[in-house]
Design a protein around this nucleic acid. Sequence first.
DNA 1: GAAGATTGATCGATCAATCTTC
DNA 2: GAAGATTGATCGATCAATCTTC
Lengths: 153, 153
Amino acid sequence: VKHKSLLNDEQRSVWRRFMRLQAELTRRLDEELRAEMGIGLNALEVLWLLAIARSNKLRMTDLADHLVFTRSGVTRLVDRLEREGLVLRENVDEDLRGRYTILTRKGFDLFEEAARLHVDALGELFFDKLDTRQLKQFNALLCRVGEGLGESY
Amino acid sequence: VKHKSLLNDEQRSVWRRFMRLQAELTRRLDEELRAEMGIGLNALEVLWLLAIARSNKLRMTDLADHLVFTRSGVTRLVDRLEREGLVLRENVDEDLRGRYTILTRKGFDLFEEAARLHVDALGELFFDKLDTRQLKQFNALLCRVGEGLGESY
DNA sequence: GAAGATTGATCGATCAATCTTC
DNA sequence: GAAGATTGATCGATCAATCTTC
């Protein structure tokens, strides 16, 4: 049996490349980060959100809103970070349902080093390959495709 | 404490958009496919590889080489497909270590319907938003970034 | 000893259910 | 009853170890 596809070659090529590039980049960045710093890409993003937040603290909901995660996923991830002493949790005074996740000194220090590492790797794997014009183009294309997919995309 | 980042705004924007766009598209495509056809995106890719293969069969290694998966991941995925009767396994005559995965009639029929669905969704979410020139640009950028990351990227 | 494939243990995420406070 | 957060069960993947054939 033979299959007749409904995408043309260029479309199939773009789609496969897009998916594979993301997978490969994620794999490499995550691997390096785990090997050198003992945390994954997702953990780094949590630390980053906390590092730029006012007082270095955020509620679970705020974290979940800025991540690709479900609420329960965020809970588990923060559990792990807490176990390693990178963050701690604290009740929210004005709303007894809420919990803050707070970046510790240890967490901040680790974040800074991990961020440097990550940004270097990202430069090598991604940004060094594009000039300013190409970067602008890329951004425009991503915006175009992401349009209407949800607020922050 | 305050964090000084080493990426400029445009770079950070591109990277976040790239990762999020991929995550969101994957999530939606996978969800739709699961709801309508009971298989995920990865399973569809296996069925696709088999559908375009000679005699509709491939060895585990061939599958693994064309997927983002590890060998054991492929084994488990094919296990599931076999349980649902979409593929079956058979020994390789010339090499007793090897196993073929063979697309069944049921698997092919399901693949055809799933592929139609998937391609339609992909059109709506992705290709309809780009004209020919933009598609070419996108492809060029992906190639550029993927250069030197591994053969097929 | 290497290559092809699988298995057992584990990891990191989701979903649905639950608990508490609003 | 809804919102914030967590928990128990499960899913889909990986890794390291293993088995068989080369």
